[in-house]
């Protein structure tokens, strides 16, 4: 097959990895953001940790793999993106380190002060990645000041423009609603009622921001151009909007899993919308379109792409299979009795 075909396959896989990462890690990041607002006592806090405990680590691997796939399939994009967004990436990294450690350490010492300390870090460590990922992707959608040598001509502060901040807020809200629906699905009783109520309130803000972001993108980014060329792509934003509308529908009917899946459809559709709009760019230059890093000018050799395709074709289905099995095994309803002999954390 042609080199081009593999470059396109890896572009699609690149998008899929990000989408799966946002859908999966999104709910546990959201749970972390909600923790201090919704949990009133230690039992409720433990229920929330228990609801994400068996999954968060595996979910985060999708981020590592998305990074690894960028390195493997588009090394020049990886090199320019990671060195250019240096400060933002280290903030993300430190936040993820803090968060992982907080989940593991909080239950290890029987002391309220100790737990409060790690709860706070879990919250910060969930909020910052959501914000940074949203800001980063909005900036990529808009294009970044990359010169002909792939040098980043902006600064960290230039990343915090209004459109990008709107993207950050969007991610925080989307993950919060996503987390709330997951927790409502997993947890019983009074806490669930509060979660459902909060999810509905947050949804209003989420809906406004999603619509605003899609509209601003029309003016501030070239993302919608691809949609005029290939109208079939409209299925992605359509999926996002349908998912968005179904969230309150299912919440009102107390169909928690359906509400969670609708939120997942929104995140999936939104990510696919953005990635499809970028094509064939991975890291567009706002200074000169010629300097953009695309899947064609930044990819690995045909041989590497072929080998990586074989690896992905064999192993991604296996990964999905055991991930699915884990979700089925551990998606039980968390009750007080469950917590009394809870394992892990």
């Amino acid at each position: 097959m042609e080199h081009n075909v593999f470059q396109i396959i890896w572009f699609v896989l690149w998008g899929v990895l990000w989408a799966v990462y946002f859908v999966l890690d999104g709910f546990d990041l959201g749970a972390g953001i909600l923790l201090p607002c919704v949990a009133k006592n230690e039992t409720e806090r433990r229920a929330i940790y228990q609801a994400v405990g068996p999954f968060w680590d595996g979910n985060e691997v999708w981020l590592i793999t998305a990074g690894g796939a960028t390195f493997a399939a588009f090394p020049k994009t990886y090199a320019v993106m990671f060195s250019g967004l240096y400060t933002a990436l280290y903030l993300l990294l430190f936040a993820l380190i803090i968060r992982g450690v907080a989940i593991e350490f909080r239950g290890k010492v029987e002391s309220p002060g100790w737990r409060r300390f790690w709860d706070f870090l879990f919250w910060i460590g969930s909020l910052i990645p959501a914000l940074i990922l949203g800001v980063a992707f909005a900036n990529i959608f808009k294009g970044l000041p990359i010169d002909e040598k792939g040098l980043f001509r902006g600064s960290f502060l230039s990343l915090l423009n209004p459109y990008a901040l709107l993207g950050g807020v969007l991610f925080i809200l989307a993950f919060s609603v996503h987390g709330a629906t997951w927790l409502a699905y997993r947890i019983n009783g009074e806490l669930r009622e509060r979660l459902a109520r909060d999810a509905k309130i947050l949804w209003i803000f989420e809906a406004v921001v999603v619509v605003a972001f899609l509209l601003f993108s029309l003016k501030l980014t070239p993302l919608w151009n691809n949609y005029l060329k290939a109208p079939i792509l409209f299925v992605f934003p359509l999926l996002a909007v349908v998912g968005l509308l179904l969230i309150p529908y299912f919440l009102n009917r107390e169909r928690w899993l359906a509400a969670f899946l609708s939120s997942g459809a929104l995140i999936l559709g939104f990510t696919a919308w953005g990635v499809a709009g970028l094509f064939p760019n991975l890291f567009p230059s706002s200074l000169n379109p010629e300097w953009s890093l695309t899947i064609f000018n930044s990819s690995s050799s045909p041989l590497t792409l072929k080998i990586m395709t074989v690896v992905a074709v064999i192993f991604v289905p296996i990964v999905l299979a055991y991930t699915f099995w884990t979700y089925r095994t551990f998606s039980y309803r968390i009750t007080k009795e469950e917590l009394s002999y809870a394992e892990g954390y």
Binding site: V61, I64, T65, G68, A69, F71, A72, A73, P75, Y78, S300, T304, I307, M308, V311, A312, F315, V316, V319
Partner: peptide, 11 residues
């Protein structure tokens, strides 16, 4: 090198 890291993550 990148493909080796990606394979490590996947496997």
């Amino acid at each position: 090198f990148g493909s080796l890291l990606a394979i490590e993550a996947t496997l």
